[in-house]
Design a protein around this nucleic acid. Structure first.
Lengths: 339, 339
DNA sequence: TTGTAAGCGTTATCAT
DNA sequence: ATGATAACGCTTACAA
């Protein structure tokens, strides 16, 4: 059993003071080169590793950034976290990841836990249940800086990193229209969460700009669960006036729609054209007829972490919160032209 | 700006000693109930939150468990981490997640970083490059307990949580044989990594038990990248003696094979039957002809965390390392019967 | 029942 | 250039 040495051990070993050891190990000028040499050597010999916990206590900084996402196993968030990590490790920080599982209650619990763990900052994508944000406000009151990404809280002071959801939805819908579709449905989550709100807006505007009517009953609100989506599709395709196309507002919804269409034996794009937000590699590969709007998750994570760490390290200055908007990419894999 | 109070603040506020506050806040018996009341009240008023960093320094425990996996965004590891988290948070610990990206170098760097961060234990699934495990041995020498899961290092002292890879492979291969297939290929990673080693073994044994020959050239070693897999398949199906079926040894390989077959216009199960390891929901849904061996990721994570925390909290006793083997599930979605 | 003080590992402010 | 000491927040003998 190899106990990790402390500066105290080194001091004792060398018969000098701990202060001198500390200076030798740090960047201090006021240290005789030879002493430094000696200390460095002893440190290596004794297996010294600085104790970050002691440093944290001293500096009142944890060098830890909290991350709260709905679910890691979701590819979108998984990839974003990779981006966060890339930046964070490089800057000597580490991350503590929590999952809200789309529950506001757990999100609040996580926020409090992270705060009590003395994180230096928080990166969050709020849960679908989160309509009130007092837990985030509390954090800000404690002077813990914040980056929100993807799903953001408008009234809250913090960095905001999002993609241009409006544009993505607009482009996808426009693509469907240009492919000759007129009777276009929208499957989305709701009109309150920041990102789906914008996407619904993009869908509407694309219709309008192309002289197509926006019909309330063409918007179906869903959390992405397969069952209700399948039922809704079944009902829609039982009508005499069937959908030409569907704009899918989220990852989950896209996945469920693809599966449901398969189960219902509705062929894409022969029976219906589909386009929408999706970051899942597999359905890109398996569905050549699917046009997807993909988000730069990795880049998003990098930006989110980058602005946050900047703020953390320059706390003395006035904080100016960044509003970063990234572009989505429209992947057209095969014409969705109706026959 | 709401500074978080310390016990010192409370003591000053109440005009009593720090020690008394500490006792009131803890489980000490030797404290007058009224004093405790007073302290608790003041703590609430002043916004007191215990500082885990100070506690760590005192107790020489970080209440932190390190987790190293190849990649979070991979559904298998994402789900496992969810299981780990479930247990860990409940026990008052938290996790620090690192990714090796299948690189031994990064795995070593991560191990050292986590160790210097004073983790209380490590949960790891080693990278595909990891054939030497001195970095893990170093950890054990530092008395940091270890759980390995999925991909394990045989010679290393630590808990091991795996699925019955042999059985899973045996069942999948047997299923292919029972469906009337004789000329069965195996696509696998290698014969050294613990899990794929066992899977190859299961494949062989199933052939043997059914009186089929094992042919070296029927085993294709691949890291799961699409390109080489597609080329190999193209070559195989250009032969006069085409494959009847393919046993796929890993998640990635399964995904790439499905995509490649699609691109090559080889139909499943008409042209070829396939079965293998896969934990991706999507391909389960999209490929009714695919028979999959799924692993209980979530359960695996729970077990991994559970045995580790037990060891951490009972360090005084002799450590007995657990060897936990979970069962896989064979999902047969449609007969892979050859026509 | 309460207070005093040492200690966890480190840095920083004094002196020397 | 170096040493002694206080401080970070907390727990815990030891004294009172």
């Amino acid at each position: 059993m190899n106990k990790i040495a402390t500066i105290k051990d080194i001091a004792k070993h060398l018969g000098i003071s701990i202060a001198t050891v500390s200076r030798a190990l740090g960047n201090s000028q006021s240290i005789k080169p030879e002493t430094r040499e000696k200390v460095l050597l002893a440190a290596k010999e004794l297996n010294y590793e600085p104790n970050p916990i002691a440093l944290s206590l001293k500096a009142n900084k944890s060098k830890t950034i909290g991350v709260i996402v709905p679910q890691i196993a979701n590819a979108f968030f998984g990839n974003t976290i990779e981006g966060i990590e890339e930046v964070v490790w490089k800057k000597g920080y580490h991350i503590m990841i929590c999952q809200s599982y789309e529950s506001l209650e757990r999100e609040i619990a996580n926020t409090e836990l992270l705060s009590s763990r003395r994180i230096d900052g928080l990166i969050i994508s709020t849960s679908l249940e989160s309509t009130s944000f007092t837990h985030l406000q509390k954090l800000i009151d404690k002077n813990i800086p914040l980056t929100m990404f993807d799903r953001i809280a408008d009234g809250i002071n913090g960095h905001k990193v999002v993609v241009d959801n409006y544009e993505g939805a607009y482009n996808a819908t426009t693509h469907l229209i240009n492919s000759g579709n007129k009777n276009i449905y929208c499957f989305t989550f709701d009109d309150f969460i920041s990102n789906t709100h914008e996407r619904l807006h993009g869908y509407k505007k694309a219709l309008e700009d192309n002289g197509l009517p926006f019909l309330e009953d063409h918007v179906f609100f869903t959390n992405g669960d397969l069952e209700p989506i399948q039922q809704k599709l079944e009902a829609l395709f039982a009508q005499k006036q069937k959908p030409d196309a569907i704009f899918m507002s989220t990852d989950n919804i896209s996945a469920s729609i693809i599966i449901a269409l398969k189960k219902l034996n509705i062929s894409v794009p022969n029976d219906v054209a589909i386009a929408g937000f999706s970051n899942n590699d597999l359905d890109q590969c398996l569905q050549p007829a699917l046009t997807t709007v993909t988000q730069p998750c990795f880049e998003m994570g990098k930006q989110a972490a980058s602005v946050l760490i900047n703020t953390i390290e320059n706390k003395e200055e006035d904080i100016t919160y960044q509003n970063i908007v990234l572009r989505t990419t429209l992947h057209v894999r095969e014409s969705s032209q109706r026959k």
